[in-house]
């Protein structure tokens, strides 16, 4: 490898090796962070965009809401309360997990699961009430939206129940000896996200007009 004579002189001293031409500082290795955490956050973001799409579709229809009567079943208020409570119990479970108390974590998760299932049952009951009132999927665009929004949220909540159940079952199989706080954290984060989505959807459904 023969050394090649440079054609032109650089205009200013070339930064010493180890710099990258942009900053003179030595570059450390990227901070160790958890890909799992990033992955879950981004997946949640994608789901959020799905709901954003549905919500914007709902919002552009909102000005004609008054033409289409839709009385929301009152059980939805109770469901909302149940879901909020479940988020609290989930957060409590997370705190227990971080302090390494596997048993109370399992209790907290169990309570969350129970409340989640109760919420789903309540949503089905709300559907029945609506159906008895003669409001079906096809009746008008707002009844359609009611079923689509609640169903999409419900499907994601069923996934959430499945995930929490998985974490809970693994802990049970290990007889409450070890529990991965990260798994609890990420499923709790998803669960809170679903609670927030429901609060947002419930607000939307309660809007009478913009």
């Amino acid at each position: 490898m023969a050394s090649v004579k440079p054609l032109s002189k650089p205009r200013e001293p070339i930064p010493p090796f180890g710099g990258d031409g942009f900053s003179r500082r030595e570059q450390p290795a990227p901070a160790p962070s958890t890909p799992a955490r990033w992955g879950v956050w981004l997946a949640i973001f994608a789901v959020a965009m799905l709901f954003a799409g549905l919500s914007s579709a709902y919002l552009v229809h909102l000005p004609q809401r008054s033409r289409f009567p839709l009385e929301l079943p009152s059980i939805l208020w109770a469901n909302t309360l149940v879901l909020i409570l479940s988020s609290f119990s989930c957060q409590w479970a997370l705190r227990q997990a971080r302090q390494g108390r596997a048993l109370s974590t399992m209790q907290g998760l169990g309570l969350t699961l129970a409340l989640g299932v109760l919420f789903l049952a309540g949503q089905v009951y709300a559907w029945q009430q609506l159906r008895d009132a003669g409001l079906h999927l096809q009746t008008h665009v707002f009844s359609s939206f009611f079923y689509v929004l609640t169903a999409t949220h419900g499907v994601h909540l069923i996934v959430g129940v499945g995930i929490l159940f998985g974490v809970w079952a693994v802990a049970l199989l290990r007889q409450g000896t070890t529990l991965n706080p990260l798994a609890v954290e990420l499923s709790a984060f998803y669960w809170h996200f679903l609670t927030l989505v429901w609060l947002w959807l419930f607000l939307l459904l309660n809007l009478k007009a913009i």
């Binding site: 994608a46 789901v47 965009m49 799905l50 709901f51 954003a52 799409g53 549905l54 914007s56 579709a57 229809h61 999927l137 096809q138 008008h140 665009v141 359609s144 939206f145 689509v148 999409t152």
Partner: peptide, 21 residues
């Protein structure tokens, strides 16, 4: 992409379940 998914779900419902989004 998720927004298109939302749109596609609504279009499928319009086509097959008689909604009218």
């Amino acid at each position: 992409f998720p927004v298109l998914l939302a749109g596609a779900i609504l279009l499928l419902l319009d086509r097959h379940l008689g909604t009218s989004f």
